[in-house]
Amino acid sequence: MSLKDIPVHFDPGPEPDGSAPTGMALALLQEVADHLRTVADGGERQIVELGNLPLSDGDFRLLEEKLGRGEVEATISASGRTEVFETAYTGVWWVKYFNEGDHPAAQQLEIGTVPMILEAHPDDIQASAENFSRLFDETVRNSH
């Protein structure tokens, strides 16, 4: 006799995590509209954190559908993957951070010229400039 012979039927029931939009997505779009106005008027970069809001799968689907996809897509490899894409609305960016194990770590809508994770940090540029001059010296030395 194997496990298959035992007449047990597993009924997981309907998905308990409601997949219908909750209204939260609409509230969020309203917030994004405000932020976009702020940035369009010359204000600072605005960020909306999606990770700690009780958004349902339906809310996410609605957000993705309404915001759409724009011209830019990028993947950053720094302590795991980060995915960035511009939505159909210029200046509204969707940023998805993943950790080393490729689990979602944070998810944000950034409203501004360019998402901060894409920018190089001045300290890193400083270090890079030092390394680069060394590379140049070495190359010159080796060619003689």
Binding site: I76, S79, T82, Y97, A105, A106, M116, I117, D124
Partner: peptide, 11 residues
Amino acid sequence: SRRSFLKFCAG
């Protein structure tokens, strides 16, 4: 790089 700090802090 500092991007890792940024990412860590974002989480």
